[in-house]
Design a binder for these strands. Structure first.
Lengths: 200, 200, 200, 200
DNA sequence: CATGAATGAGAATTCATTCAT
DNA sequence: CATGAATGAATTCTCATTCAT
């Protein structure tokens, strides 16, 4: 006997359909009628679970962002003991996940650039930056992070990741394990500097 | 009596209004009626100068992209003789321009992510990557570029620049000359590696 | 509780309003907003039942033409055994129906002359001429049809009918049974000739 | 030295362009901008000669109808001495002219069926019927016109002529002199009846 | 709870008409 | 007189949202 689901089947079907359609046609190109049809529910049902179209998108964005945060955290708490190990785990996890999940990635991108993303409480940084900042404050033995604001350190890793994942989705490059390793090292180099012997 | 202007006043007023409004409300959030009102022209005038709303956006995008390319090229042909000098000039020029021109920056970002940007000939990379690729192929004395596809090398510079410029516009960080210098060096580090003495 | 109607009430209301308005103001003079208002439905409802304004007109035309064909056929299969009897039945049926149904008549006329009527498969002649041609090929005992193309024979009956029906609608003449009989005989005379005794 | 023209060149150019365009695209499909362009005049010029688009069409219609009347009268006053000779001259003149002048014919037809033709003073009949009625009242030696209203007699000739001319323009039939003779006799038969010997 | 027909405000686009040059 | 850029009301069509069944 199936136990009651936390999120009802219909609700989930709507979210799945929305993810798929928005990633394909964008927010304005995706009508509520289309979502309902793709999710095999009536229009009224959609409005039972989500107050407005905008609210649906917002909830989905929050959900996707939680997923993103989970990926980042899994890298941090994963078992790697060195800072670089954790950094590498995060970059690899992010890259692998979003390269394989184009619709989720495109949804996040489209939302971030759309006019929907105006309310500040939706801001990534507060949530995502916290664990990062934590790492940055912890010292390393033979390196130090650049003397730049945490936001910028984050942007210097996240920015290139986004651009590169887009390239993969556009099939302009195909990613290999070696390339991802190399990219990881490069990004690490861009945000750290070696301590001079006298500092050690 | 006013002399005839090369690009009509009305046409320019429409483009100015569009830039402003799209950067604020996005493409779908900006109606032609609003553009016409903001530009102080009648609806019909807009359609005298631009065949459709979509055409208006495309023309503006092409114009903005030419500006972007101009900035990049000006860094290359600017007078710097070393590769790093040129790289630095480009990063500084890009950063300074788009930090100071939020509406132009946001227009470009929104267009690139919108469904308007589907026609492949609008693709930046072909145009913008050419001069970059040229630099990469030229050797340096004591460094070499990472063995990564040109697209990725480009993404590792352009990606963080975009993210950082956004941070500045969101007023999450304020950029100083020292920071921009530091960022430039970091990005350079991320895409190059030192030759070992034996290679020199 | 009202039972489901075969053709929805709203759809029928839209078609009724269209017939009325188009016959009065013509196609271009009849806006979709006006049709919706007259039919007591929202604008969106019109577009639920008909893809475009043009499609609405086409569907209505096809419907009206079927009615016309039905009238002609009913004259042919009606029970009259002589050729003249059938001819007379058709002319009387056509005349009576369209004199009494001005809006249907005017809709047909307007559509036939409008630029909507460009698609060749909408051409009456193929459909309407078939039963006529059939009659013409059958011989009579003491008459023969003029040696003119079927199209022209048809035009020599249909053309005057149209003109006369218009006169009635304009109230320039009022039609009596005797007049219709007289007209029927006249039209018959115009398309047939008596066989000479030697041919009989 | 050219004498002042009764109708200015520009005015005539506008009317020529209108005739051509309306016969091709219909009234609503012909914009004033298109007319001005085709006539090689500015938009303002059009409005110097004609108060409104509607007025332009009306004046053109009146002009075309005068032409039609001229053709009919030329048949009457042409030299034919018998009634049938005059009738035949009219039918032939009408047929030949409008088969050769499709644009003029279509303009007349479109106008008659359009919503422009609402003002009763534009009514053909008053003008065109007068000379016809005159003929009908004159007796013949061995025939008499059917006892039907003049309007209907007229419709029984004009109606089929219109339908047949349309067939020619649609290239569904090609008209020969013999066919036109035959049609003329048929139409004559349809509106007259032979006097019996005792009546002569 | 689920449905989808109905709604109407709002969007892009056209075009007859005007008027400053 | 001639011009054509400028105008904005009007038109067709879409789609987020509601509500009777």
């Amino acid at each position: 006997m199936a136990t009651a689901t936390l999120t009802s089947d219909k609700r989930q079907a709507i979210m799945d359909a929305t993810l798929e359609l928005v990633s394909k046609h964008g927010f304005e190109g995706t009508s509520t009628a289309l979502i309902a049809k793709e999710a095999n529910v009536g229009m009224g049902t959609l409005y039972r679970y989500f107050e407005t179209k905008e609210e649906l998108f917002k909830e989905m964005f929050i959900h996707q962002r939680e997923q993103l945060l989970g990926i980042i955290l899994s890298g941090i708490v994963g078992g790697e003991t060195t800072i670089y190990g954790q950094f590498s785990a995060i970059v690899h996890a992010l890259g692998r996940f979003y390269m394989a999940h184009q619709v989720e990635f495109e949804f996040l991108q489209r939302y971030s650039d759309s006019s929907y993303m105006k309310e500040s409480y939706l801001d990534d940084s507060a949530i995502i930056l916290a664990p990062i900042a934590n790492i940055l404050s912890s010292g390393g033995e033979d390196f130090r992070f650049k003397a730049l604001p945490t936001h910028i350190i984050f942007a210097m890793v996240y920015g290139p990741m986004i651009s590169i994942i887009q390239l993969v989705h556009q099939e302009k490059v195909s990613m290999t394990d070696e390339m991802l390793d190399s990219i990881t090292r490069s990004l690490w180099n861009s945000i750290t500097e070696k301590k001079t012997p006298s500092e050690m």
